[in-house]
Amino acid sequence: MTDLSDIRREYTKGGLRRSELPEDPMALFERWMEQAKAAELTDPTAMCVATVDDQGQPYQRIVLLKRFDEQGFVFFTNLGSRKATQLKQNAHISLLFPWHPLERQVAVTGIAEPLSTAEVLKYFVTRPKESQIAAWVSAQSSKLSARQVLEAKFMEMKQKFSAGEVPLPSFWGGYLVRPSSIEFWQGGEHRLHDRFIYEKSAEGWAIERLAP
């Protein structure tokens, strides 16, 4: 067994205080996202998306956040993918934004709701044409005999759509994650990290400090 127990460092980027927190967690998320972009982090919109299958087995994968507002967080995917299949059975979902260079994490729990075709199309037409074609090519999460099969299919579809616009595949969609909780984690010295969780209720958002 490889021992990794001696790998550690101090977290010194700064703290997070209750007095600094807005009443709406999305306002703080927007501030942190802008700071992550300004710091030129690699893929600041990358989030770990966790879903659960019908046997209770959790699965995680990295997905790019494409939009957020007061309603929640939006991402897009193949509707035949493992994540989409699992969300159809169990809409509970968890997101994690791992902004390590800023010594920050944001963890979200909530419910994933399918987007309307109009909302999906509005985003799909903004994608580069190669990405639109790739959506037609990949039966996401299905097994492939070889990469050449995927590349050949891409070239076939690229030729098919070379003369015009790429239509929206019926099997490609997106989700709005309506959050029930959002936790903000800021690293602190001596492992005394600052953690605040916003939890949604009928009255609005309640804020609590969590022990590190």
Rank of each mutant, 00 (worst) to 15 (best):
T2Y: 00
D3R: 09
L4M: 08
L4K: 00
L4F: 13
I7Q: 13
R17Y: 08
E23Q: 12
D24E: 13
M26H: 02
M26P: 00
A27S: 12
L28D: 03
R31S: 12
W32A: 11
E34I: 05
E34P: 03
Q35C: 09
Q35A: 15
K37F: 15
L41Q: 11
P44K: 08
P44L: 11
T45Y: 13
T45V: 13
V49P: 03
A50N: 05
T51S: 15
D53R: 04
G56N: 06
Q57S: 12
Q57D: 08
Q57Y: 09
P58G: 00
Y59T: 12
Y59N: 13
Y59G: 11
Y59C: 09
I62V: 15
I62S: 10
R67E: 15
F68P: 02
E70W: 07
Q71V: 07
G72W: 00
F75H: 01
F75S: 01
N78H: 13
L79M: 12
L79W: 00
S81G: 09
K83R: 15
T85R: 14
Q86T: 04
L87Q: 04
N90W: 04
N90Q: 14
H92P: 00
I93R: 01
I93T: 02
S94D: 05
S94P: 04
L96K: 01
F97I: 08
W99Q: 07
P101F: 09
P101G: 10
L102M: 14
E103R: 03
R104A: 07
R104E: 05
V106R: 02
V106T: 06
A107D: 04
V108L: 06
V108A: 04
T109E: 11
T109H: 10
G110P: 03
G110D: 00
G110N: 05
I111L: 09
E113M: 06
P114K: 09
E119L: 13
L121T: 09
L121M: 13
K122C: 12
Y123W: 08
V125E: 11
T126W: 09
T126R: 11
T126K: 13
E130L: 12
S131I: 11
S131W: 06
Q132D: 07
A135M: 06
W136S: 02
V137G: 03
V137Q: 02
K143P: 00
L144A: 12
S145Y: 07
S145T: 14
V149P: 03
V149G: 03
L150F: 12
E151C: 08
A152W: 03
A152Y: 05
M155N: 11
K160N: 04
A163R: 05
G164A: 13
E165S: 15
L168Y: 05
L168K: 00
W172G: 02
W172S: 01
G173H: 02
G174L: 04
V177G: 05
P179A: 15
S180W: 01
I182T: 07
W185V: 08
E189T: 13
R191I: 10
L192M: 13
L192I: 09
L192P: 00
L192A: 09
H193S: 07
R195P: 01
K200G: 06
S201M: 08
A202W: 03
G204P: 03
W205Q: 06
A206M: 11
I207L: 15
E208R: 15
R209Q: 14
R209W: 05
L210C: 03
A211M: 13
